[in-house]
């Protein structure tokens, strides 16, 4: 440990920062996509439309039974096949993350919606709002407010999960660091740095989530 070489980190800073940007971009897009698709799935399940609600439930349970790596491989294989031409791994990976995380987000959002008293829906209907309007203007705003800490916690999980793009070689933070590590024979320095950086962001995020939890709890 005595010959820990800091210079390899500073010499390669631009490369590492580019990698970190990819990691954050992927995280943000996947969180947004996952929440949108997850909300849709949750609303469909709660609306109890015959067949369609069942399909949404099956979707959620199905994706929750699979390893993320397998889903990444699936999309990496399928997306170019469907488009008939090769595309960058970024898009196939992004689609994989959105499809996969939506299943987890939908469970969080469903629990959030279920925690709203049913009187709220009845009140909305009573003043003449349609069911979608009741959801849009009354139930969802309240549900999301109480869900923010849990959604943030899931976003941190997703942030960590993005490291799995390693299996298709997308140059995120981990892959960039690994390339430098192998090129310069500096595995110890690079992997320790990677661990510290992931820890820093995840820990800061989870502290903030806990702070929000305390602030929002009655």
């Amino acid at each position: 440990m005595g010959d820990f070489d800091y210079s390899v980190i500073f010499d390669n800073l631009p490369l590492l920062i580019d990698g970190l940007k990819v990691t954050f971009l992927l995280t943000i897009l996947a969180v947004v996509g996952g929440i949108v698709l997850g909300t849709l799935l949750a609303l469909i399940r709660i609306a109890k439309v015959p067949v369609i609600s069942w399909v949404a439930a099956a979707y959620v349970n199905f994706f929750r039974s699979l390893p993320l790596i397998l889903v990444i491989f699936w999309l990496y294989f399928l997306v170019p096949l469907f488009l008939g031409r090769p595309v960058g791994s970024f898009y196939s990976v992004l689609i994989a993350f959105i499809l996969f995380e939506a299943a987890y987000y939908s469970e969080i959002i469903r629990a959030g919606i279920s925690s709203i008293r049913s009187g709220q829906v009845a009140a909305g209907r009573a003043i003449g709002l349609s069911y979608p309007q009741t959801m849009r203007y009354i139930v969802l705003p309240q549900a999301f407010r109480s869900m923010v800490p849990v959604l943030l916690t899931q976003a941190i999980v997703l942030f960590q999960d993005t490291s799995l793009v390693y299996v298709v070689g997308l140059k995120d933070f981990l892959v960039s660091a690994e390339l430098i590590a192998n090129r310069d024979q500096r595995l110890v320095e690079m992997f320790v740095l990677v661990a510290i950086v992931y820890f820093f962001f995840s820990f800061a995020g989870s502290l903030y989530a806990r702070h929000l939890q305390r602030k929002l709890s009655v």
Partner: peptide, 16 residues
């Protein structure tokens, strides 16, 4: 252990 991605932990144990 919760705030470092599992994949990174795997590499730490295996390479570092």
């Amino acid at each position: 252990f919760r705030n470092i991605p599992l994949l990174v932990q795997l590499f730490l144990w295996y390479f570092v």
